[in-house]
Design a protein around this nucleic acid. Structure first.
Lengths: 197, 197
DNA sequence: GTTTATTGACTGATCAGTCAATTAAAATCA
DNA sequence: TGATTTTAATTGACTGATCAGTCAATAAAC
């Protein structure tokens, strides 16, 4: 066919299709044809725009990371106190836009794939560091350094753990109860470690 | 060749080889030939004993689950107090036999695969329930019911989250620091929620 | 002589990635 | 403006590789 649509539109459609396909299958071994089909184009076109499959997957991961980053930045800008910063980060991670089954499944799948792909691993590290540093920016004003570090680590790990459980769909973690659980641990951690000097 | 080795030996060798292969690749898409090769047999033999690949994977998962279960039971039997029960569960999950890179990678890979395979999902649920109930058996004597439930959920999710982070190899969680982190959260949770009546 | 272990050699399916051909929009020119 | 050339979008039809799973053949143990 002719030249009806342009590159950015197609790229975006393919990334959206990739998220949907990965979310439905629950893993990264979806075929290029499946993704392309969902986006309403041929697999040849997907290769035309992204080259190898890994590039498309990488672009998809970057997209997810960018959206999460945008949401977090917006939420943090509204937070007035250190304590509110912590809650903002938690809230965003379990917000309706982020804590959806497809998104969660995609994250989990990317974690596994990162074992194989150094580039993917690097992206995931960016995410981990950002999460840690955002949490730390709240904790550090409320606790002495070493406790603040530990607190941020614990909350970050807890968030990841709840994501896994969501992927398993074993019931428990809907958004609200996940947030409540994390907040409870935040409270306990803050109360237990002595407030900073 | 003749009849030099018998079924149970081969099955076990194949399961061990599967764990090693999955651990090295970091995902479940290892080929039957790769696994069989590692076990020193032909892929045809692997099919002879396990039928489909999924059966071998399932058997591998069951093996991991069984070993973990055995370790946990042993540790719990030595725990004298409720508080010690909690620590015992935590300690086993991060023990040298469980918290090895191959094992961690295998768990993560199985989580992803569970999205596709209902039978695998069922096994993982067994694990999740067992972990929760073991933790709860400690918490329930120290906190009122609802808080005990929440505490057990939080610690279980935290453990899973630390496993993910280990898989990412981003540094932090070696056994010792992982245990310390979890114990800190346990302490904070126990101190913060009022002791039971 | 029956049973069991074991394999090499297949087969069929699936997929990532390529490529030459087609079509139409855009740019250039008359 | 209308003609023509260039450029980009798009695909169907391939190819080559990889793999799960099968099977008939062999040989040792019982």
């Amino acid at each position: 066919m002719p030249r009806p649509f342009a590159e950015p539109l197609r790229r975006r459609a393919l990334i959206d299709a990739a998220i949907a396909a990965i979310g439905e299958r629950g893993s990264l071994d979806v075929t290029m044809s499946e993704i392309a089909g969902r986006a309403g184009v041929s697999s040849a076109l997907a290769h035309h725009y992204f080259g190898a499959k890994e590039e498309l997957l990488l672009a998809t991961m970057r997209h997810l990371l960018t959206e999460l980053g945008t949401d977090v930045r917006a939420a943090l800008s509204e937070a007035e106190t250190p304590r509110a910063r912590i809650s903002a980060v938690v809230a965003v991670n379990f917000s309706v836009t982020q804590f959806r089954p497809e998104i969660v499944a995609a994250w989990l799948a990317f974690y596994v794939e990162a074992q194989k792909s150094a580039r993917l691993r690097r992206l995931l590290r960016v995410y981990a560091r950002r999460l840690h540093s955002n949490l730390l920016s709240g904790f550090v004003a409320l606790l002495p350094r070493p406790q603040a570090e530990k607190g941020a680590e614990a909350i970050a790990a807890l968030i990841d753990g709840l994501y896994i459980r969501r992927a398993l769909k074993d019931g428990l973690p809907n958004s609200a109860s996940a947030v409540a659980l994390v907040e409870q641990v935040v409270e306990a951690t803050l109360a237990h470690s002595k407030p900073s000097a």
